[in-house]
């Protein structure tokens, strides 16, 4: 398993890193310090590891890091920070959509990809887009509301 030098562009920063062929993008990112990407199952079941790669949300536990070579990757920390949160992040706080918060990074990334594609999503589109992200705390109601309100916020600007 010879490592190969891979270039990962994460949140606008380029990282050159030598990775074995079986390293998942999830592990590569966390090893680089992007611990905002969460690991919930490493089997594609939960969506906690969601990041956006070239505009599409993927479960980073299912993507080999080599396949992300030279691609543009966005994690939840890349959307905004405490000083200037993204409207989705702000809405998740305002509507109590994050309880334990462990599903939140992946959930927000799925929502981000959805709103990028459909700025005014229907309820059905929202349910479908978020159906790969498990949340055990909230019962999803607050999440639903947060995404709806963020959509409104983003499009009214």
């Amino acid at each position: 398993m010879t490592p190969k030098l891979v270039k990962l562009n994460v949140n606008g920063r380029a990282h050159h890193t030598a990775l074995a062929p079986n390293t998942t993008l999830l592990h590569a990112l966390r090893d680089l310090g992007y611990t905002d990407v969460k690991s919930g199952c490493e089997k594609g079941d939960c969506g906690a590891c969601g990041v956006i790669v070239n505009g599409a949300v993927v479960n980073s536990c299912l993507l080999l890091a080599w396949l992300a070579d030279n691609q543009e990757i966005i994690t939840v920390a890349g959307l905004g920070a405490a000083a200037k949160p993204h409207p989705l992040q702000q809405a998740f706080v305002d509507f109590g959509a994050a309880q334990c918060g462990f599903c939140t990074p992946g959930m927000i990334m799925s929502a981000k990809a959805l709103l990028d594609e459909y700025p005014h999503p229907t309820d059905e589109q929202m349910r479908e887009a978020l159906s790969g992200n498990l949340c055990r705390c909230t019962g999803y109601t607050r999440i639903f509301e947060a995404v709806q309100n963020a959509a409104h916020e983003i499009t009214s600007d």
Partner: peptide, 21 residues
Amino acid sequence: YQRKDGIGKVTGSETYTSDVI
């Protein structure tokens, strides 16, 4: 009120055990 730990959770800066390095 806004949760005190809310912003850390939504921006991914909250530290859980597996994030301790």
